[in-house]
C-alpha cells in the first residue's frame, strides 16, 4: 500500500488506460498519417539495406565479366538499385571495397592496389602530378569499371524513395557490350539495322519507314528533353504537338474608381474596400460592364 494522499479522498488515480477512446477522431487520423509516413520511410531504408546486402555478394558467378554481365544479374542489379539515392550508392561502393571487391556491383575482381605504401599517392594527370588520398585510388579494379559504376550513379534519383511519385526514375541503364542479349530488358534500340533490312521493299514502304523512324526519333528526343529539363510528370504531358490558337482579350475597359457610398445607398455598410459582395444582396439591374468588374477577382 502506497502512502496516503493528504488531499481529499477522491477516486484513486487510474493507471494509464490505453483503451480509452481518443478525444478527437481527428487526432487519431493525424497521428496515424504521420506514423504511416515514418513506417514507409523505415520500409524503404530496410529495402535499401537488404539490397546492399545482396549486392555485396554480387556477381553470382566468380568469373563474371563486368562488360558482359549475365542477364539475370544485370536485371536484378537494375531492379535492386532503383530505391537508392546517390549517397546510398556511395555506401554500397564503400562496403564492397571493405569486402575487397571492385566498387562496381557487377564486377567480381578486387580493387586495384595503390603502388605506394603511404597514405597519399602521386597520380600523373594532364595538369601535372596530383596528390590524392590512397583510398580514392583503391576503389575500382579498372577505369572501365569506374565509368560503368558512375554511369549508374548519375541516373539515380536524388529524392529519397519514399518521397518519389510513381513511375519516375525507375529505369536504370547499365553500360554493357552484349547489348543484343539485353535488348529485351534494355531500352536501347538499334533502329538502323531494321531499316537497312527493309531497304528493297519499294519506295512507298521506305517512305513509311522513314516517317515512323522520324516519329520515334522525335519521341526519344522529347523524352530526353523532358529528362534534361527535369520534368517531373513527363508522362502526363500531351503526346502530340500543341495546337494553340492565341486569342487576344479585347474587352479591355478603363479602370473605374470604386463606387462611392452614394451610388450604392444603403448597402455601404457591406462594402469591403469599396466592393460590395453580391451574394446576399437584392438583385438589381446593373449594366454588363459592372458584371465584368465583379468577375471573381476575390476568388483567387
Amino acid at each position: 500500500m502506497g502512502p496516503k494522499s493528504i488531499l481529499k479522498n477522491s477516486i484513486p488515480v487510474s493507471s494509464s488506460s490505453p483503451s480509452a477512446k481518443p478525444v478527437n477522431e481527428r487526432h487519431l487520423e493525424v497521428a496515424l498519417y504521420h506514423a504511416n509516413l515514418i513506417k514507409e520511410q523505415r520500409d524503404v531504408e530496410e529495402q535499401i539495406l537488404k539490397a546492399t546486402l545482396t549486392l555485396l555478394d554480387f556477381p553470382s558467378a566468380p568469373g563474371a565479366n563486368p562488360a558482359r554481365p549475365s542477364i539475370a544479374d544485370a536485371l536484378q542489379f537494375r531492379t535492386l538499385i532503383i530505391p537508392f539515392q546517390p549517397s546510398d550508392y556511395d555506401s554500397l561502393i564503400e562496403e564492397r571495397n571493405i569486402a575487397d571487391l571492385c566498387g562496381y556491383a557487377l564486377c567480381p575482381k578486387p580493387p586495384k592496389r595503390a603502388p605506394l605504401a603511404g597514405k597519399l599517392q602521386f597520380v600523373d594527370t594532364k595538369d601535372g602530378v596530383q596528390i590524392v588520398n590512397k583510398k580514392e585510388l583503391e576503389v575500382w579494379c579498372s577505369e572501365e569499371c569506374a565509368r560503368r559504376a558512375l554511369y549508374v550513379k548519375v541516373q539515380l534519383n536524388e529524392e529519397p524513395a519514399w518521397m518519389r511519385r510513381g513511375g519516375i526514375g525507375d529505369k536504370i541503364d547499365i553500360l554493357v557490350e552484349n547489348t543484343e542479349d539485353h535488348r529485351i530488358v534494355l531500352p536501347l534500340r538499334p533502329k538502323h539495322k531494321e531499316s537497312d533490312a527493309n531497304k528493297d521493299d519499294g519506295e512507298t514502304n521506305q517512305d513509311q519507314e522513314d516517317e515512323q523512324e522520324a516519329w520515334a526519333l522525335r519521341e526519344e528526343a522529347m523524352a530526353e528533353l523532358a529528362q534534361e529539363r527535369g520534368d517531373r510528370n513527363a508522362k502526363s504531358t500531351k503526346k502530340g504537338l500543341i495546337k494553340a490558337t492565341i486569342e487576344e482579350r479585347m474587352t479591355v475597359k478603363t479602370p473605374v474608381a470604386p463606387s462611392t457610398e452614394v451610388q450604392h445607398g444603403g448597402a455601404a455598410h457591406m462594402a469591403i474596400e469599396g466592393h460590395i459582395p453580391k451574394a446576399d444582396m437584392p438583385k438589381k439591374s446593373v449594366d454588363g460592364q459592372d458584371e465584368d468588374e465583379e468577375d471573381n477577382d476575390w476568388d483567387d
Binding site: E45, E46, L49, T52, S91, E94, E95
Partner: peptide, 15 residues
C-alpha cells in the same frame, strides 16, 4: 563503422 553497418545495427531488432 560504416553508415550501412550502423543502419543494420539500428534495424537488427527488426531483422
Amino acid at each position: 563503422i560504416t553508415g550501412m553497418a550502423l543502419r543494420l545495427l539500428r534495424g537488427s531488432g527488426g531483422l
